[in-house]
């Protein structure tokens, strides 16, 4: 790759990492969210408290975990609590500022599906399911969602609503009595979408460098709202890329060694 060049996945991870404010308590899903959360911790947000649903509070992994229950997480954590405790005292108790989720499908109100593709009782593809996503989406102060954008993932109607964003839009989330604010940013490999303050419909607000509005619209399964004034996401810096690539290389080396 030529110097300064980067992949769309790297752009997505870097853009997601930048959303994490230093010092926030962050409930992290595995996969893309975990990479972005650790990139943030290793760059601008060293005091971020990473919480994984296995009960590890303040985890500081040197390599990305293979699962939410990795030994690496508990060895580096400030505290390790049981599963009933992490969900009841910490998440439901309202102690977690930010949740970070991936998904298989998302709709225009940032509701997500990680359960099935097709009919629930006769699925085309059976996905792993909620895990802790349903409650992370409900009870964190706010939520970030990251996934690759294409019209199989960005759908008009979810096959299954696993975790709630803004449900039917407007004030429907508040009416259900969920305490968290809901998803505040959806970070994809093409750009950044944020909910409209009133209708809560996801609106394209930032394009990653080199991406056109037409591309993003074509990758979205509903008529996508586009902000009148679009930002362009700053390209990953050399420092961000170097930390992310080091992290990925360290991870690959460590996991290959676990043979």
């Amino acid at each position: 790759m030529p110097e300064g060049a980067y992949t769309s996945d790297e752009m997505m991870t870097v853009a997601a990492a930048r959303m994490i404010r230093n010092g926030v308590t962050l409930f992290v899903g595995i996969g893309l969210p975990s990479a972005a959360a650790n990139l943030a911790r290793l760059t601008h947000a060293p005091d971020t408290v990473l919480i994984y649903e296995s009960g590890t509070i303040g985890a500081k992994p040197t390599v990305l975990p293979l699962s939410i229950g990795d030994g690496e997480l508990s060895e580096t954590a400030d505290a390790v609590v049981s599963i009933p405790e992490i969900f009841s005292y910490w998440l439901q108790g309202g102690r977690i500022g930010l949740g970070f989720l991936g998904a298989a499908q998302i709709d225009k109100y940032a509701n997500i599906n990680s359960t099935v593709i097709g009919d629930y009782n006769k699925p085309k593809v059976r996905l792993p399911g909620s895990g802790g996503a349903q409650e992370i989406a409900g009870f964190c102060g706010e939520v970030l969602i990251t996934l690759r954008q294409n019209n199989r993932a960005f759908v008009k109607k979810l096959d299954f609503l696993t975790s709630g964003g803004y449900f039917e839009g407007g004030d429907s989330r508040e009416k259900l009595g969920l305490p968290g604010k809901g998803p505040t940013n959806v970070i994809t490999d093409l750009g950044i979408l944020t909910p409209d303050p009133e209708t809560k419909e996801l609106t394209l607000t930032s394009l990653h460098p080199g991406i056109t509005v037409e591309q993003v619209v074509a990758a979205t399964g509903w008529p996508l709202k586009v902000a009148p004034k679009l930002d362009v996401t700053a390209a990953p810096t050399a420092a961000e890329l170097s930390v992310l690539r080091d992290l990925n290389e360290r991870t690959a080396r460590a996991h290959a060694g676990q043979a």
């Binding site: 599963i83 009933p84 969900f87 009841s88 439901q92 359960t115 629930y120 349903q134 409650e135 409900g138 009870f139 299954f160 609503l161 696993t162 975790s163 709630g164 449900f167 429907s172 989330r173 259900l176 009595g177 969920l178």
Partner: peptide, 23 residues
């Protein structure tokens, strides 16, 4: 987690916030 805690506590059910609005 709530269902296992209830089982260990000899309660008939576990209780939690959540699940509202989901499929």
């Amino acid at each position: 987690a709530a269902a296992y805690s209830a089982g260990a506590s000899n309660l008939p059910f576990g209780m939690l916030r959540g699940y509202v609005g989901t499929d």
